[in-house]
Simulated assay, not measured.
Amino acid sequence: MNVKMLLKLTNDLAMTILLLLAMAYQITGNTMHELVGASLFVLFVLHNILNRRWYKTIIKGRYNLLRFLKVSINLLFLFTMTAVLFSALPISQDVFPFITVNNDMLFRQIHVITAYWGLILMSIHIGLSWGMIVNAVRKMTGITGTNRIRTLCLRLLAVLIVVYGIRNSFERNLGSKLTVYDPFGFWVSNDSSLRFLIEYLSVVGIYIFGTHYTLKFIQKHSKYKRSMRGQ
Score class of each variant (00 low, 15 high):
residue 2 N to Q: 07
residue 6 L to Y: 06
residue 8 K to F: 05
residue 9 L to V: 10
residue 13 L to P: 04
residue 17 I to Q: 03
residue 18 L to I: 10
residue 21 L to V: 08
residue 23 M to P: 07
residue 24 A to P: 04
residue 25 Y to I: 13
residue 26 Q to P: 10
residue 27 I to Y: 14
residue 34 E to L: 09
residue 34 E to Q: 10
residue 37 G to Y: 05
residue 43 L to R: 09
residue 48 N to I: 00
residue 51 N to E: 09
residue 52 R to Q: 08
residue 52 R to A: 13
residue 53 R to K: 14
residue 58 I to E: 01
residue 59 I to F: 15
residue 62 R to Y: 14
residue 62 R to M: 06
residue 64 N to S: 09
residue 69 L to I: 01
residue 70 K to L: 02
residue 71 V to H: 00
residue 73 I to G: 00
residue 73 I to F: 01
residue 74 N to V: 00
residue 75 L to P: 01
residue 78 L to R: 01
residue 91 I to A: 08
residue 92 S to N: 10
residue 92 S to P: 10
residue 93 Q to H: 12
residue 102 N to W: 13
residue 109 Q to P: 04
residue 110 I to Y: 04
residue 116 Y to P: 03
residue 124 I to S: 01
residue 134 V to R: 11
residue 138 R to N: 15
residue 138 R to F: 12
residue 145 G to Q: 11
residue 145 G to C: 07
residue 151 T to D: 14
residue 152 L to I: 12
residue 152 L to Q: 06
residue 154 L to Y: 12
residue 156 L to I: 13
residue 156 L to F: 14
residue 165 G to A: 10
residue 165 G to V: 07
residue 169 S to H: 10
residue 173 N to P: 02
residue 174 L to I: 13
residue 178 L to C: 07
residue 183 P to T: 03
residue 183 P to Q: 02
residue 186 F to C: 07
residue 191 D to K: 09
residue 191 D to Y: 14
residue 197 L to P: 02
residue 201 L to Q: 05
residue 203 V to H: 03
residue 205 G to N: 03
residue 213 Y to S: 02
residue 217 F to G: 02
residue 221 H to P: 01
residue 221 H to G: 09
residue 223 K to V: 07
residue 227 S to N: 11
residue 230 G to P: 02
